[in-house]
Simulated scan of single mutants.
Amino acid sequence: MTTTIASVVEPRARFRDLVASEWLKLWSLRSTGWSLLLGALAVVAFNVGAAWDHYRYWFAYDEASRVAFVADGLALGDAFTGNAATVLVLCSAAMGAVAVVGEYGSGQVRTTFAAVPARGALVSARALVLAGVQTGFGAVVAGGSFWASQAVLSLRGVGVSPGHPGAVRLVVASALLAPVCALAGMALGAVLRRGAAAVVGAVVLLLLLPMVLSEERRLTAVLAHTAPFRAWHRLAGEGVAGPFPWSTGGAWSVYGAWAVVAVLVTVVAVRRRDQ
């Protein structure tokens, strides 16, 4: 007598199920909500603080300086300052690194890979969730900063509206800087697998290197232009002049290239290691 045992084949996880799982996993971390809240407050505070300084010391400017304040785009510069962009880069990159490193540190990654052997799909779902959350975060802080800073400046009659030349581009570029840096942080986390190392790597790669590269020589200028932080400066209206100027289209392409390469690096790093 022959006994036939039917084999049970587990159905492959659908991509939308992986996205839902990664969404729940991200928000199950207590650090997620607090990181987003504190990061948003810090970024908005830097921008509103810059606008408040101009409001407070307005009477110290002569008439020509007041006219130039709007003509030269200084009012728009208060909507999202370089210091605020630096804080945004750090917060987003750190959150991206934690999204990967946390599982490796706790050992939960073994369970995750056992449940979902398709690591490429898993990483893609995680990247999609991370990018979506960070895009929403960036939109809130960029839009909130613009509204609050210009409300302060409007008390002196120098605030600008969203229809001001370059205003929409500044807000969109500032908002999208968050997901780009978060995906870069995720890639560093997948490669280095240590939270502190990934954060330090993000600081060096995303902030320090772009700062030390000179715009005076072609090679270093081209290298500087490949950094998301320098791309944000270009889209914000800075970095237009100089011996080697570049276009806004080139700056947008830097954003896209970093996002795509970061996801690819993460997928390769996760696939090539046992855990």
Rank of each mutant, 00 (worst) to 15 (best):
2 T>C: 00
3 T>W: 08
6 A>Q: 14
8 V>M: 04
8 V>H: 06
10 E>Y: 01
13 A>G: 13
17 D>F: 03
21 S>R: 15
22 E>G: 00
27 W>Q: 08
31 S>Q: 13
37 L>H: 01
37 L>K: 04
40 A>G: 15
42 A>I: 14
69 F>W: 13
70 V>T: 13
70 V>Q: 01
74 L>F: 12
82 G>C: 03
84 A>C: 07
85 A>E: 12
86 T>E: 07
91 C>L: 11
96 G>L: 10
99 A>C: 10
105 G>R: 14
109 V>P: 00
111 T>S: 11
117 P>A: 05
124 S>A: 15
129 V>I: 08
134 Q>V: 00
135 T>D: 03
138 G>M: 06
144 G>P: 08
145 S>T: 06
155 L>G: 10
160 V>Q: 07
164 H>K: 02
164 H>G: 07
166 G>R: 07
170 L>E: 07
173 A>D: 08
184 A>H: 06
186 M>F: 12
187 A>L: 06
188 L>G: 04
190 A>S: 12
190 A>V: 05
191 V>W: 08
193 R>I: 09
201 G>Q: 08
202 A>C: 12
203 V>F: 15
207 L>K: 04
207 L>E: 09
216 E>T: 09
225 H>S: 13
226 T>N: 11
227 A>M: 15
231 A>Y: 07
234 R>A: 01
262 A>H: 03
263 V>C: 11
265 V>N: 11
274 D>S: 06
